[in-house]
């Protein structure tokens, strides 16, 4: 984290060891799921992988269980709204491998009324975090054992983190 290289976003220079090893994840994903990864971004020593939402569970299971990758902790999970896109939401998973001390970011795009597979069976941490993504953005996770609002009152209308929801709110 104190390695501040002046890289352009999108450049694929792998001159730090961490990028070489993280590129292992990209290579293995390309082997196991040929043609699936839509985009790979290297930026500031981090790696981001964009996959289609229907394959989220398979890809995450592979990343978690493969003995060379072992991304066994889901550090963070959130959503982001890009309203100008056809599939307006992006669900972002920050995965971390404790044995190898490696990070990877997995992203999947999902539209407003499309169902999103839930990863609660892979990591318990997803239970709360998917609730929050639903609460704030309205992303519906299929397979979640109790998708309800968590931070806002149950009868709240609207999804505040969407870009068309005003900062001051409606009340």
């Amino acid at each position: 984290m104190d390695d501040k290289q002046q890289e352009k976003p999108g450049s694929a220079t792998a001159d730090s060891i961490s990028q070489e090893i993280e590129a292992l994840a990209v290579r293995k994903l390309a082997e196991k799921f040929p043609g699936l990864v839509e985009e790979v971004i290297y930026f500031r020593g981090e790696i981001t992988v964009l996959i289609p939402k229907d394959k989220v569970i398979e890809v995450c299971t592979f990343l978690r269980d493969d003995p060379d990758l072992r991304y066994n902790m889901m550090k963070d999970m959130t959503g982001c709204d890009y309203p100008e896109r056809e599939q307006r939401f992006e669900v972002i998973y920050q995965l971390y491998s404790l044995p190898y001390n490696q990070h990877i970011r997995v992203k999947a795009r999902v539209g407003e009324d499309e169902p999103m597979p839930s990863v609660t069976l892979l990591w318990h941490a997803a239970y709360f975090q998917e609730k929050e993504a639903y609460d704030m953005l309205g992303i519906k996770f299929v397979g979640h054992q109790g998708l309800r609002r968590i931070l806002l009152p149950e009868d709240w209308e609207g999804y505040p983190l969407r870009k068309d929801y005003p900062l001051e709110g409606y009340h």
Partner: peptide, 9 residues
């Protein structure tokens, strides 16, 4: 800031 996304903990 430049365009891009990061995670830092």
């Amino acid at each position: 800031a430049p365009a891009g996304e990061i995670y830092a903990g």
